[in-house]
Design a protein around this nucleic acid. Structure first.
Length: 909
RNA sequence: GGGCGGUUAGCUCAGCUGGGAGAGCAUCUCGUUUACACCGAGAGGGUCGGCGGUUCGAUCCCGUCACCGCCCACCA
């Protein structure tokens, strides 16, 4: 016996373990997968190894699992390749924070080896968390193939890729400006910089011109902007938002087209506080509209200035150390100062010597590190770069050709935009946790890239002789470097494994749009370069999960919903269904707990429908042929199952998860529970043994189909029902997870559908009229039918018991005329009357009829407007015109009947 | 500055090929009829952001404006 409610906590863990133990998740299991089965593969976006499940994971992994379970049931050889990412910066930061909290020595004091030991220990301790949480969600990944970006195999892949790209000239070392994070002490990529709007100041400084030089600066203008008055200046004003960088200035740039300054080009200024003589250069970078029109140039600390410096061959003076303190390149008074302390002091000092011209309020965008939240400094260092522009070309073409498509398609534009303007990818990080760069240096800086130290020595000796000593590059690679290889490295590359041959290219990659640049683009580049084939044919971009008001979830806002709490309260199925139901393409997902509760209720609804079947002995019958049934009700429901199943299949194939979820929801609740079960009751409780047996078998069959169709969305409750309902009737052949997805055809019976549609409309109309006219719900009242045609009479006869029961009627009879004071409504050609004149208020009934008539009149007017339009008749397709004519006819017929009823009432008063 | 998306019921959102505006929640009324009160029956509620265009016909296509959100670039 089924209990009254499904208790997720009692079954989820047990069922998951059963699935996993049975090998249901295992790809290519010969015991299970048929020989010719088509492969289907999704690689999971690897979560951070020490992370825990958040809403984004819940959404993305639900959608992936829906696809995986769907395709598995369709008989494909499914591989959901699972694993975790070492997440260089994030993980290292966590461990460093732990060390600090424990009052232990920092990583530098510990040394590299001891620190890495500590990180591995943390990985061992917390690395299983996310996997356990994915299991709680019901994710049917192949855990036997779980990988980690720093495991042996994947590290070998990273090595090979680095060495090969270097050999091909696609990885190189360069000294240029990078985004430097002073807190983390590492370079980061452009993508890891978040510009934020800040209310700051624009400081205007006077840079004195070299000895004796002066110029005429316009101070008044006429209406057309021509200067009318000048003053003589022996200085030039520059404006800056970062005063401290002035200590590294090596030029002042003005625009050669700017009449105010053009004559100064080639002259020099004396850099205040420093005393360095620096040139005034003409460069288009100087915008006459911005600031003072003259711009200080600091090539070592500003990306634009770096380019200006390159054009004019200016020296690059680095004035900051790795912690963004001023270094020994600056006058003694400023050495060792933090950049922001120095900023204040420089402004004060310039003010003191009367070189501070003015300070304006200024809104500007300041770059922050996405991890450290510290202000990023452009800093001149040696780093390793990937020639992304070269690798991007085939990756762009692949999407242009459609080898890989984005769903929704509009994200392709974002992808193209970025890829066509791609910058060199800085891949070295001054961290310890990650793949150490396989490069070895001689004491004089010669570099050898090799798979290992021995190989590096072989190369070095060949060039330098035998007494050379090599030291390894201390830096590690950007985490995304190893992630970029994920679709083939997890399948065994660089080994030629059978899995690689079978599952690459993979099928679908599911991720959020903010990962397109970080990961998708880079997988495309690496996949095409090393496998000569795209890594996946489809990129599904899911929405971002927000709170119910649409705000981004963040710890600081306190609006974070923990998916595990929702699983605890409502069960994994409810959370999963919510995720799928909200996953409309191209929208953010706003999650409200009420939604999850509603879908928990949906599960309970199905559970109770199963209980109903159980109580009514609706057991599965071996060899039952759903297309052979006789009862109209049963012939109808079979067609409904077919239609819904086809729709769900079609929507899932198109990645419209919300539509698929909506169809299965409506099928189970509105069709199966609300109507089929209710309409089946008279048959199940009646005396016609044949009809009873047929209906029992059919109810059991429909329930099975519902369970099958719902399984990808709600795996636990459906599996539990599958097994529990297997206790009666013909035996199950296996677990639901491996059962066959419904594929039905030829079972739609138009005649039965029309008839049941009529029954449902009749019952609904009676209920509606009763409720509207306040007929007591318990009262059984008669129904009289006027003007019914032959088929209606037959239907009334066939469904008499049913209609009486569901509409709470005492009896149904044909009448020549409807008694005065009947509540009346029209169903197709017939007029229906509920004669209860003694109970009802005749005026209220008249008002009700008037309202219905007014609506019909409005409809008719609208239709006549269309049909009376010659152009409509000339241009609209035939079927549209036909439809309008039919609507007109039926509305007019109904209006006439209601008008008749209304007139009789009126005369009776 | 460039680009993308949004504006539909009180709230959150569907509406995929242009042809009678939908769901869930909330609200109101009625109801415990042995599957289910995590329920059932019924009802109210929308100028589909504004303006213009294309079309016989526009929530849907085009243009434009307003407001909201996001991305990229840049801001001395």
């Amino acid at each position: 016996m089924l209990e009254k409610n499904f208790i997720p906590q009692d079954v989820e863990e047990r069922l998951y373990n059963e699935w996993e133990r049975s090998g249901a998740f295992k790809a290519g299991d010969p015991a299970r997968v048929e020989a010719g089965a088509q492969p289907y593969c999704i690689v999971i976006p690897p979560p951070n190894v020490t992370g825990s499940l958040h809403m984004g994971h819940a959404l993305n992994n639900t959608l992936q699992d829906v696809l995986i379970r769907f395709e598995r049931m369709r008989g494909k050889d499914v591989l959901w390749q699972v694993g975790t990412d070492h997440a260089g910066i994030a993980t290292q930061m966590v461990v460093e924070r732990q060390l600090a909290q424990e009052g232990n020595a920092g990583r530098r004091e510990m040394g590299r080896e001891a620190f890495l030991e500590r990180v591995w220990a943390w990985k061992a301790e917390s690395g299983g968390t996310i996997a356990a949480q994915l299991r709680r969600l019901g994710a049917s990944c192949d855990w036997s193939r779980e990988r980690f970006t720093m495991d042996e195999g994947l590290s070998a892949a990273v090595l090979k890729v680095f060495v090969q790209l270097h050999k091909e000239g696609l990885i190189y070392k360069d000294k240029r400006l990078v985004n430097w994070d002073p807190t983390l002490g590492t370079a980061i990529s452009d993508l890891e910089v978040e510009p934020k709007e800040v209310q700051g100041s624009l400081w205007h400084f006077r840079y004195p011109l070299e000895d004796g030089v002066t110029f005429q600066f316009p101070i008044e203008h006429d209406e057309e902007g021509h200067p009318t008055a000048f003053e003589t200046r022996n200085y030039i004003v520059v404006a800056t938002t970062r005063p401290e960088t002035m200590l590294g200035d090596t030029a002042v740039a003005v625009n050669a087209k700017d009449p105010r300054y053009k004559d100064l080009i080639g002259k020099h200024v004396v850099l205040p506080l420093v005393g360095r003589l620096i040139p005034i250069v003409g460069d288009d970078h100087a915008d006459p509209e911005q600031g003072s029109g003259a711009v200080k140039i600091t090539p070592a600390h500003d990306f634009n200035d770096f380019e200006v410096g390159r054009r004019h061959d200016l020296p690059k003076i680095n004035i900051l150390d790795a912690q963004a303190r001023l270094n020994d390149e600056v006058p003694e008074a400023y050495r060792g100062l933090d950049r922001f302390v120095a900023r204040k002091k420089i402004v004060e000092d310039l003010d003191a010597i009367k070189l501070l011209d003015k300070i304006d309020d200024h809104t500007l965008m300041v770059p922050y590190g996405d991890r450290s939240n510290d202000v990023i400094e452009p800093w001149l260092t040696d780093q390793w770069y990937v020639d992304a522009a070269t690798l991007a070309k085939p990756a762009i073409e692949a999407v242009e050709k459609g080898d890989t498509v984005f769903v929704p398609k509009n994200w392709e534009k974002t992808y193209f935009e970025w890829m066509r303007n791609i910058q060199p990818w800085c891949i070295s990080r001054q961290l310890w946790w990650g793949h150490q760069i396989p490069a070895w240096y001689t004491p004089d800086g010669d570099v050898f890239v090799a798979h290992n130290e021995d190989e590096a020595y072989v190369q070095a000796r060949r060039k330098h002789g035998s007494d050379i000593v090599l030291t390894r590059d201390e830096d590690v690679l950007d985490t995304w470097f190893s992630s970029a290889l994920w679709p083939f490295s997890t399948l065994g590359w660089p080994e030629k494994t059978p899995e690689l041959a079978r599952y690459y290219k993979t099928d679908v990659l599911s991720t959020a749009h903010d990962i397109i640049f970080f990961w998708v683009a880079r997988m495309m580049m690496m996949g095409l370069h090393f496998m000569d084939e795209v890594p996946f044919h489809t990129v599904y971009i899911h929405a971002l999960v927000r709170d119910e008001k649409g705000a981004k979830m963040s710890k600081s806002k306190g609006n974070v919903i923990n998916p595990l709490d929702l699983i605890d309260t409502y069960g994994a199925d409810a959370l999963r269904f919510t995720m799928a139901a909200l996953a409309a393409q191209g929208r953010d997902v706003k999650i409200a707990e009420a939604r999850v509760e509603g879908y928990r209720n949906f599960g309970t609804k199905l559970w109770n429908a199963a209980r109903f079947c159980e109580m009514n002995e609706c057991a599965r019958v071996d060899g039952f042929d759903p297309s052979s049934v006789k009862q109209t009700l049963n012939r109808w429901i079979v067609g409904e199952v077919e239609t819904s199943a086809a729709k769900i299949t079609q929507e899932l194939e198109a990645y419209r998860f919300n539509e698929a979820a909506g169809v299965v929801y409506r099928f189970i609740w509105n069709i199966f529970c609300d109507w089929y079960v209710e309409l089946a009751k008279p048959l199940l409780q009646g005396d016609d043994e044949a009809a009873k047996a047929e209906t029992r078998a059919m109810a059991a069959w429909v329930l099975d189909q519902a369970i099958l169709l719902l399984h990808p969305f709600m795996p636990f409750i459906t599996e539990e029902l599958w097994q529990r309902t297997g206790e009666a009737g013909s035996p199950r052949t296996g677990a639901l997870i491996l059962a066959e997805w419904p594929h039905l055809s030829g079972m739609v019976d138009e005649e039965a559908a029309a008839e049941m549609d009529w029954v449902i409309r009749l019952i609904s109309d009676v209920r509606s009229v009763r409720a509207e006219m306040n007929v007591p719900a318990g009262a059984k009242i008669p129904l009289r039918v006027k003007g019914a045609g032959a088929s209606t009479l037959a239907r009334l006869e066939r469904h008499n018991d049913l209609v009486c029961r569901m509409a709470r009627l005492s009896d149904v009879a044909v009448a020549e005329a409807l008694p005065t004071g009947s509540l009346q409504f029209v169903l197709d050609e017939a007029t229906m009357g509920l004669p209860i004149a003694d109970v009802i208020d005749l005026r209220a009934e008249m008002a009700r009829l008037e309202k219905a008539m007014a609506k019909l009149e409005g409809d008719i007017k609208k239709i006549l407007g269309k049909l009376g339009n010659e152009k409509f008749i000339a241009n609209a397709p035939e079927d549209v015109i036909e439809e309008q004519k039919e609507r007109q006819a039926s509305a007019e017929a109904e209006l006439a009947k209601l008008g008749d009823a209304h007139a009789k009432l009126k005369s009776a008063l």
